[in-house]
Nucleic acid binder design. Structure first.
Length: 666
RNA sequence: GCGCCCGUAGCUCAGGUGGAUAGAGCACCGGCCUUCUAAGCCGGGGGUCCCGAGUUCGAAUCUCGGCGGGCGCACCA
């Protein structure tokens, strides 16, 4: 944990600058990490920023600040570099002892409850690789926020009333001539999410083949919303089984939730009706009477262009900037329902769901679901009422997410509008070679594009469970080869952990604004910058302690307890900027809290992923260079072992933030 | 047309609210398994950071203008 020291340095500098130059206003500055330990452990660039105002060279200013600086606990030395940097060198021994013995604990961040909504897969087919990116990003966000002390509630929105579910119902009823009992039977006896995956794409073709089939779809959607029909009954069966299939898939990836929010409940509990009245009363929506949107309740889209003077042809443009909230047939659109949902999440609706217990996850974590029926009387957590909301949805939904914030602003909730955060990311597509292997039909036009788009509607995509299965079997073969003494169960368990490590790391290592062109061969790699590389580094560290215990009867606790008395040589500064020494390892391991703060600020998990990878690289280099078991000098051995213990703890934490477990051996 | 995202090594990508010699993985070449698991380590080659202006002591990073690619702007979600 390095941030407490950052804070101390920051305030000491502020104080010194005020006293040395008589300034009351100091430009904002940060405590940075120099490129290598030979330059220093912490650096500050405030001298550059003051150069103009003080009309002095940065180097001089840095020197004066250094002279004025009161002693800072934990800092051994301060130097003013010729370039103008102020560099700080830490007191190494107490720093290491405090970290490895866990004495330096970060203070929790004090803020209100945050709701993170992610996954939200239409419950009509199996989860594919695009959903995987969403769920991985969302789950990692939850973990990272919790790590820094933020209370988080994880919600998974279930669109049980949408067109996609209606389409599968149409498939069963009209296309396959099945009734509710048939569907129930299929759901219980087949891999149902896969069955629906195929059926959904068949229905899509069926629609395309005959335009009159569209009427069937509209009728199904209508019946789905109104309840008491065969369609709605079938919908309930389908949705329930698919949702459970998704939960099972996500559980394989260490992903769980607190609450499933059903769209149907938003309708049936009159959330929407209530919200609609408010929107109408405030003039946020209005009934369009002319043009092609006549008869629809629409919201005017505020894109900042309203102030522009009207020019010829502007009128047409005006109409294009209206979004339908309620269709002319009286059926509310997704946007409308989502606005109501967003208001509820902030506790602004004045209404609440009823709740039922849905499932136990990971053995003991209770998953709740909304319900229109009576629900549990006691023991229900307080859901919603967030101060900040992250909606994890890909960038294609930007337009609609902006409408949510607009609705909040219009109804005079500017703070909530500002705290409605669209956690946006680019989609996942497939490489041509992977698409080809999956048997995609050749398409001359599509082939010209640099990638192939995933389409659930067309049944084109890599299913999450298929991908995990392939990763697991690949990993399992390797685990069995390396560990002949493992039982099949052990091999399987480790293979599962490696598969999750590989795929979750793959999903996190790219920045979120980057479109991922998924390639099976690339994802199947366990070498280089991959999850298994990181897991392997921890496993190696584990082995050192296993052998230390076996051979010498020395535990990690023994090592740490004997540290204070041990000598310091091992931490002596090195002039070699590339030295992969003990200090560099411990120092780097301590930066996790700083990295997490940056990660949250930028909502960029590639930062965390790259940090963890760099830390593992540092350890691997150290591992090859500095023996521990075979080091004869006892004190040297202790210090090295202590550093490895700290590294192991910190990388394990970093991996946990990414939802990646570490096998005991691999 | 308007909005958002992307453009850095042969390929795939990292590069905090500007800062110290532009990095990693893969691929390629050369070393290292009687010493804590080689899913590893060490070394090597490889760059007009898309182009052009501007701001600045300092720009891959910020601003503006181009070029190229992707996505969005549905009575779908």
């Amino acid at each position: 944990m390095i941030l407490p020291i950052h804070r101390q340095v920051h305030s000491a500098i502020t104080d010194a600058v005020q006293r040395a130059f008589g300034l009351t206003e100091i430009p904002p500055f940060t405590v940075e990490t120099p490129p290598n330990r030979a330059l220093g452990d912490l650096a500050v660039t405030v001298a550059f920023q003051l150069a103009r105002a003080l009309r002095k060279a940065p180097r001089m200013i840095a020197q004066e600040i250094a002279n004025a600086l009161a002693p800072i606990p934990g800092i051994a030395q301060v130097t003013a570099a010729p370039t103008g940097y102020l560099n700080f060198f830490l007191e190494r021994k107490p720093f290491v002892v405090d970290r490895v013995t866990g004495r330096a604990i970060a203070a929790p961040v004090d803020e209100g409850k945050v709701v993170v909504e992610h996954t939200a897969i239409n419950p009509n087919k199996a989860a594919h690789i695009g959903h995987l990116r969403n769920a991985t990003l969302g789950d990692t966000l939850v973990r990272v926020l919790r790590f820094r002390g933020t209370p988080v509630e994880t919600q998974n929105y279930i669109d049980d009333m949408g067109v996609q579910v209606a389409d599968v119902i149409v498939g069963f009823k009209e296309f396959e001539q099945k009734g509710v009992a048939d569907v129930q039977h299929i759901a219980e006896t087949t891999r149902f999410d896969y069955y629906c995956w195929d059926l959904y794409s068949k229905v899509t073709h069926w629609y395309d083949a005959d335009k009159t089939h569209a009427a069937v779809r509209a009728q199904a959607l209508h019946d789905l919303e109104h309840g008491g029909t065969e369609v709605s009954e079938m919908g309930t069966v389908i949705v329930d089984h698919i949702v459970r299939a998704h939960l099972k898939t996500m559980a394989r990836l260490n992903i769980g939730y607190d609450l499933l929010t059903y769209e149907g409940d938003i309708i049936r509990l009159k959330f929407w009706a209530h919200c609609f009245e408010t929107l109408k009363a405030q003039g946020a929506v209005f009934l369009q009477t002319e043009g092609k949107l006549a008869g629809c309740w629409v919201m005017r889209i505020d894109d900042g262009r309203d102030a522009e003077p009207a020019v010829a042809g502007e009128e047409k443009d005006e109409e294009a900037r209206e979004k339908v909230i309620v269709r002319s047939n009286g059926v509310v659109t997704y946007v409308g329902k989502d606005i109501a949902n967003q208001f509820w999440k902030f506790g602004l609706l004045g209404r609440d769901f009823n709740y039922r217990k849905f499932a136990l996850q990971d053995g003991d974590r209770q998953l709740w679901a909304t319900t229109t029926a009576e629900g549990e009387k006691s023991g229900v957590p307080s859901f919603g009422g967030a101060t900040r909301i992250y909606n994890v949805i890909d960038s294609r939904q930007m337009y609609l997410q902006a409408l949510l914030a607009q609705a909040l602003r219009t109804l005079d909730h500017p703070k909530q509008a500002e705290n409605s955060i669209h956690f946006s990311y680019e989609m996942v597509a497939l490489s041509h070679s992977t698409a080809q292997k999956l048997g995609y039909p050749a398409d001359a036009e599509a082939d010209r594009k640099p990638f192939v788009e995933v389409s659930g509607r067309k049944g084109l995509g890599v299913k999450v469970d298929d991908l995990l299965d392939v990763l697991e079997s690949t990993a399992k073969a390797e685990v069995a080869r390396r560990n002949p003494e493992f039982t099949p169960d052990e091999c399987q368990r480790v293979a599962e952990q490696i598969a999750v490590g590989a795929i979750r790391y793959f999903m996190l290592k790219f920045s979120r604004g980057k479109l991922i062109v998924f390639d099976m061969d690339e994802a199947l790699s366990f070498e280089g910058e991959t999850g298994p590389y990181l897991q392997y580094a921890v496993v190696r560290a584990n082995n050192i302690f296993n052998k230390l215990q076996q051979r010498d009867g020395v535990s990690e606790a023994d090592v740490l307890a004997s540290l204070d008395a041990a000598m310091l040589d091992e931490l002596a500064p090195s002039d070699d900027p590339d030295a992969h020494d003990l200090w560099a390892l411990v120092y780097e391991a301590s930066r996790l809290d700083d990295i997490v703060e940056q990660t949250v600020r930028a909502l960029e998990f590639s930062l965390l992923a790259k940090y963890a990878f760099g830390l593992a690289q540092l350890f691997n280099a150290f591992y090859h260079r500095y023996p521990i078991l075979n080091e004869e000098n006892v004190d040297r051995r202790r210090w090295r072992a202590a550093g490895v213990a700290y590294f192991r703890a910190q990388l394990t934490r970093a991996l946990d933030l990414m939802g990646i477990d570490v096998p005991g051996r691999m």
